[in-house]
């Protein structure tokens, strides 16, 4: 997609979404839509490090949870409005990303992934032991009321999440097409070769970690507003980490649209499944879909489409 049409479409989605509360009455749609959009943000953020640079973050929920608790803290301490919470979560997520990256990125691959698992537990343990933030049982987060224009809390956080999703996707697309994305792809292909070509691999990985961490953390920020109760179990939930991995993988990790497709698809299916069937089978379905995609279509839906195009082209070339 060219840049101008892309930006026009992004702007249309944004404006359309912001006016949605004026036309759609049932708050349930915003409730479900919020979750789907939240996963668009998370998957997009994850893909910047995981898809472009090939560093698998298993600890997405650490960044998400950090965002949730930054927001919760700001609500409790200052009654801060949502935009402030989001910005603060972004900064904390970025710092967390740089810190994790600095600790582990000098060693490669698997170790980084394992370290991110560790990060979740360390942060969760930390939150468990901070009484001010409610400890293990969590705490109520009564946020300041939403601006009247949106017609309700749910509509307000939905619109906030929509803005975040559009911003995240635009940022991911920009990164993919800039020198940052090219360096990250070089790192993914071969780190020594990238280094030899003059890519400052460590700093590029740190940049990717920072951006990815910030985007995932801002996805967590509106949660305190949305759920009006936060606890360590749901903030650091495994489901977040699992979906963050599954969605880009299903969509395709090479391009910004992959995680968006994956998130829209999987999150919608999950929203329908949690209403209609049990949440256990929901996890089972994700597990099986993951295995199937890894084994049969490792490049995701984008890869399948590319294969299909290639086949059609060949068939067309042969008279």
């Amino acid at each position: 997609m060219r840049t101008l049409p892309f930006l026009v479409i992004a702007a249309l989605i944004l404006v359309g979404g912001l006016f949605l509360p004026q036309f759609v009455g049932n708050p349930y749609y915003f409730f479900a839509g919020y979750v789907v959009l939240q996963y668009v943000v998370i998957a997009t953020g994850w893909n910047i490090l995981g898809g472009y640079a090939g560093y698998i973050n298993f600890g997405t929920s650490a960044f998400f949870g950090a965002g949730v608790y930054v927001a919760a803290f700001l609500i409790k301490a200052f009654g801060a409005p949502l935009p402030v919470q989001i910005l603060a979560a972004g900064v904390v997520g970025m710092l967390l990303g740089v810190a994790t990256g600095y600790l582990t990125l000098r060693i490669q691959g698997v170790y980084f992934s394992i370290a991110t698992v560790a990060l979740v537990v360390v942060l969760e343990t930390l939150i468990h032991n901070i009484d001010y933030l409610g400890g293990a049982s969590g705490m109520q987060t009564i946020a300041p009321p939403a601006p009247a224009w949106f017609g309700g809390q749910t509509q307000y956080v939905f619109c906030a999440m929509l803005v975040l999703a559009v911003v995240a996707v635009v940022a991911a697309r920009f990164i993919e097409r800039s020198w940052i994305g090219r360096s990250l792809r070089a790192i993914k292909a071969s780190e020594p070769a990238a280094e030899a070509c003059g890519v400052p691999t460590l700093s590029m990985k740190l940049v990717a970690c920072a951006i990815s961490g910030a985007i995932i953390a801002i996805a967590g920020a509106p949660y305190a507003y949305y759920a009006s109760h936060v606890d360590p179990l749901s903030a650091f939930s495994l489901t977040i980490g699992l979906n963050a991995l599954a969605m880009p993988l299903i969509g395709g990790t090479r391009s910004w649209i992959g995680p968006v497709i994956g998130a829209l698809l999987l999150a919608s299916v999950q929203q329908i499944a949690t209403v209609t069937i049990s949440s256990e089978f929901n996890i089972l379905a994700v597990g099986i879909v993951l295995i199937a995609f890894v084994v049969l279509a490792p490049e995701g839906i984008l890869g399948l489409i590319a294969d299909l195009k290639e086949k059609l082209r060949r068939r067309g070339a042969r008279p």
């Binding site: 698998i56 698997v110 991995l245 990790t253 597990g287 099986i288 993951l290 890894v294 084994v295």
Partner: peptide, 29 residues
Amino acid sequence: AFEKRGRGNTLQSLTLFFGVSLVIEIALV
């Protein structure tokens, strides 16, 4: 799934095992 195709991709094998462990857990449930 992997080694014979000559791909030792960490993302994919980690994801595979992750999926397997979910399936085991839910099978037990």
